[in-house]
Structure formats: structure tokens, C-alpha cells
Design a protein around this nucleic acid. Structure first.
Lengths: 99, 99
DNA sequence: TAGGAATATCGGGAATTATCGATATATATT
DNA sequence: AATATATATCGATAATTCCCGATATTCCTA
């Protein structure tokens, strides 16, 4: 749990937006309900919604992953990203008690 | 409450360190117990402890202040900085529930 | 009112981040 | 094997951040 790395990852409007989309993927990516429920959301869907280039979004997702805020699962050609809720709980607790 | 501004302010090891010092100023600045308890901690004390230049620490404190994480009180020649605990509670809650 | 002390602001060079287009890699399909 | 699709990585430029020294501002005191 590298706090500074986490806060850097959160220091960007688009990355925060992505995290809120991933909080309720069925709502934000309704056309892909099944995958969203099971595996997470693939890079391409996030990219379309964010409106930035593929390379930028891929990079952003790996920043979030390195910070531990999301997890990635490769299935075939797709990489599915999901929130790591435990990391958010820990962060919330850290701010409330130790920071 | 500008989340991105807050996370940027927290994206620096020295600034986080300062915030933890301000969490218990009597412990971290024992030679200045009275002022610490009443008003907060002045820039010079923080600067000595951090080991960076005066201008850098002054800048860092104003970054923390603009983010709402600390408050400043000018008394004579000194500016005393204190944590704004309410901001931390709000941030913790934001991460736990909305982010 | 002149000088000293504490803090704030300014200007800058080095390091890091944002974002892109191009390319590489991995997987699926024919 | 050849091609198509999804994602990752590379290289580059612009913007931002880090941190400094120098200077300005504010306030106190002789």
C-alpha cells in the first residue's frame, strides 16, 4: 500500500471517472451486462466512453492497477478490469485514522 | 471539495509527512508545546523538521491549504498551520461511499 | 524609521506526467 | 499461414510538479 502512488493514481479526472464507472458497470455499460457482471469491463468499452485514445486508456488502467485500485483479468483477446474494493476500504480507513 | 486537487496535494511524501506531524504537534514539536496546542505549528518549525528550504515548505503549506486540508492563522510574524480534521473525515467518507 | 525576523512570492532548471500516434504482441478466425 | 481484433508498449512533445535561490512583504522592536 504505497500511499503516494495511490494518490497520484487518483490525481486525474479521467481516472477517477473510470473508477466510478467500474463501481457500477452494469449501469454504465448496459449493452455488455453479462461480461460486466462476471469479469469486469474491457479496455475498449472504457476507451469509447472516456473519449481518449486507446493507448492513453491502457496506460491509465495500468496506473490504477499498479496502485492496487483495480485488478485485471485476461480472457482471450480482452483484458477485463474490476475495482479492488478492499483497496478502497483500506484507503478510507488510512485517511480516517492514520494519515 | 475538489477531489483531484486534494489527491494532488497528497501526492508527495513530504506533504504527507507534514500532515502526520500536524496530527500530533505536541509530540512532534515538543519544544513548542504551548503554541502547538493553541494555534498550530509555524512554518519555520515545519521547515527545520522537513529539511527542505523555507520557500518549498511555504509553498507546500499553501498547497495543503488550497486543498482544504489545513488552515492558516497569522499571529504577528508567524503563520500557524493546523489540520482541518473535517476535511479528512469528508475525504474518508467520499472514498468509502462515492468514489 | 531603520533593521531584523518570519513568511510569501517569483523565476528557473530538472524531473515527472499527460497524451498522442505508431508499432508490437497476443489471441481468434478463416 | 494470413488476417483481423484487442491490448500493450514505445517514442515524442507539451504541460505540470519539484525544489531551489533570490527577492518582496509583513510585522516587530530598538
Amino acid at each position: 500500500m504505497d500511499e503516494v502512488e495511490i494518490f497520484k493514481a487518483l490525481s486525474n479526472k479521467t481516472r477517477i471517472q473510470i473508477l466510478t464507472w467500474l463501481k457500477d458497470p452494469v449501469k454504465h455499460f448496459p449493452a455488455h451486462k453479462t461480461n460486466c457482471e462476471n469479469n469486469g469491463v474491457c479496455v475498449g468499452l472504457i476507451q469509447q466512453k472516456a473519449g481518449l485514445t486507446q493507448s492513453t486508456i491502457s496506460e491509465y488502467l495500468s496506473i490504477l492497477q499498479r496502485a492496487g485500485l483495480v485488478t485485471a483479468t485476461r480472457l482471450g483477446q480482452w483484458t477485463y478490469y474490476k475495482r479492488n474494493e478492499i483497496a478502497f476500504e483500506k484507503l478510507s480507513h488510512l485517511i480516517a485514522s492514520e494519515l
